[in-house]
Design a protein around this nucleic acid. Structure first.
Lengths: 338, 338
DNA sequence: GGCTGCTAGGAAAGCGCTTACCTATGTGAT
DNA sequence: ATCACATAGGTAAGCGCTTTCCTAGCAGCC
């Protein structure tokens, strides 16, 4: 690897001068020297060593992002927003998949700190686990103490900057619409109960149903894995457990698709006999038949805002932005049968 | 940020000793000293500066990945394989989205070189553009000259290690199956013609049809954008241009879904009147109605193999692994109507 | 022509770490 | 008791870069 010294030697100047030319320093350099340096750079295919640069002038050029899993469409969208803003700021981004393992999340924060990243964005859902939350907060504080910036998306663990989707509002929208269409016997296909995202959505749904005079009873909620199979299984259990069920609320679209699959397998018409609604408005929601009624979260925007907070000027106090949820009406929800 | 020197001072030892206990060096250290160092590390929440470490002992801990777009399910899957292996090797991964912009790809290679990443994995499709290919090869060579490792997935540009999906075989499988089911008037919804992935798939399809005695005529191919809208538009044009068309081959699943949408909008039964096949077997392929017959590519495996090559021992000569494509039969392909 | 005052370029320190090399201590053998 | 040797721990160099500080050279002025 060619070094600055190599370039300087070849150009017949001091490393200081070479550095000044390469970084376009404010200090003026004679044109002939400048040219010689530039030629040497080209000849040697010199690229400055980012680590040495960082050591000499602490100006971080990489940001870290911790998500549950980039290959999940939810995080793929979120990440797109994060990346866009990071790229606009000239930053590279390290993406870490925690696969919903809190321990791994902690490890990654540590590794990112060691990498001296400019900022860490933690995306995903928080956990109902006080011990973990405390340890995470502690690690983040240690990182921030060294000048790092932190922003979280969709989770509450951090006392600083946060961008939140209106999960509870989304649940509320769904509940209200279901009631409006006459549904009373409603089953809920929920994800893992430890995730705050799930409980937030559920809280909104509960509130809307209670306000409408038809409170949700706990035995009509099934906590399952956050994917198709989990959705199908939970839907099956609910169908068996609740006679006369007219609607299924899945707390994300993957589970809703699973529920749809199960209903088709049982030859139950959707929405003729049972309506299904999802959450997140993933691309798949529009592609299935019937197309899913769901709640749209501005994921790209959420990611973009989070990265903007993380990379923009630090605020003296914590900023929390909430981005609205909207109902997307498609075919999978219809009026309740008599 | 606490430094090694801080730790050493607090523990009352030299930086050398502190370094030795922290890195578990082979040199033995007395237990009481070791303990004091460890306590100091804990007290100060010391995390070694990865850049300084890298400068002192050139042992890269980060790898770079360049993809078209992580939020595209194709790359999401690929990336999952890449990440898994990188994580197993204890490496963090920087993911760069080129958004199919060759210029940006080049820039990223440069930035990754500056970051001294241990390896660069270039994923996606190559371009039919000799100038670009040469420039890319040159940049990669410069990077490799500094000890970096390079592997490519799904592209031919690199003289070294490569992992390839059997794109042509996939096209061939589709062609053969179409013929077997009696289809003769076949339209092709292709992606951008500059992508080698597209032309490879097309070549396989062409070969199979030609071997079956029904060569594909060029006016039955429409090059469009690689997404739903492109697929819908191209499908519409083909339907209008080719009377009696009985099958539509889309060169990826997104375009196939677009085609399906268009056919439904025109009330054309699938596969009753027109069959549709896709490529890639993305999750959505199983979710649409009718479920898509498509070609499965082992994407996770492809990514994993590429990262394994990139992180494993260097070979003296280039290794090219081809991973097989398989036909996934679902409902969207039926026999040709009379 | 001699002085001041500026400027372009170089020398060198230092960022945080690892490690080769050296010193001082303790051990065992004689 | 003396010496040789092994060994724990320290000293310092150096990784590649930036930047402060300094020097040498020059122009401009009286």
């Amino acid at each position: 690897m060619a070094t600055l010294a190599d370039v300087a030697r070849r150009a017949g100047v001091s490393p200081a001068t070479a550095s000044r030319v390469i970084n376009g320093s404010s200090k003026p350099v004679a044109d002939n020297l400048r040219e010689r340096v530039l030629r040497a750079v080209a000849d040697l295919r010199y690229v400055p060593n980012a680590h040495a640069q960082l050591l000499a002038r602490p100006q971080r050029s990489v940001v870290g992002v911790v998500v549950h899993d980039v290959s999940d469409p939810y995080f793929a969208e979120l990440t797109r927003g994060l990346q866009r803003v990071a790229t606009d700021h000239g930053r590279l981004v390290i993406i870490c998949n925690s696969y919903r393992d809190p321990e791994r999340e902690l490890e990654y924060v540590e590794m990112l700190r060691a990498q001296q990243v400019a900022a860490i964005v933690l995306a995903g859902s928080g956990y109902h686990d006080a011990t973990f939350t405390a340890r995470l907060a502690e690690k983040l504080a240690a990182y921030e103490a060294t000048g790092g910036r932190v922003a979280v998306v969709g989770r509450h663990e951090h006392p600083g900057d946060a961008v939140m989707p209106a999960n509870a509002d989304g649940g509320r929208l769904l509940g209200a619409e279901l009631l409006r269409q006459g549904h009373r016997r409603i089953g809920v296909v929920a994800g893992p109960q430890v995730l705050t995202t799930i409980t937030d959505r559920l809280d909104g749904l509960r509130a809307a149903l209670a306000e409408g005079g038809h409170p949700l009873s706990e035995e009509r909620i099934r906590y399952a894995d956050f994917d198709r199979d989990g959705g199908a299984r939970a839907a099956g259990e609910l169908l068996d457990a609740v006679p006369g069920l007219t609607a299924l609320v899945a707390l994300n679209d993957s589970m809703a698709v699973g529920a749809l699959t199960l209903l088709r397998a049982r030859d139950i018409p959707v929405p003729g006999q049972v309506s299904v609604v999802g959450f997140d408005d993933m691309p798949v929601a529009a592609d299935v038949t019937p197309a899913l009624t769901t709640v749209r979260l501005p994921l790209v925007e959420l990611g973009a805002r989070a990265m903007t907070l993380a990379l923009g000027p630090a605020a003296d106090r914590s900023r929390v932005e909430v981005l609205p949820a909207t109902l997307v009406v498609r075919d999978s929800l219809g009026p309740a049968p008599d």
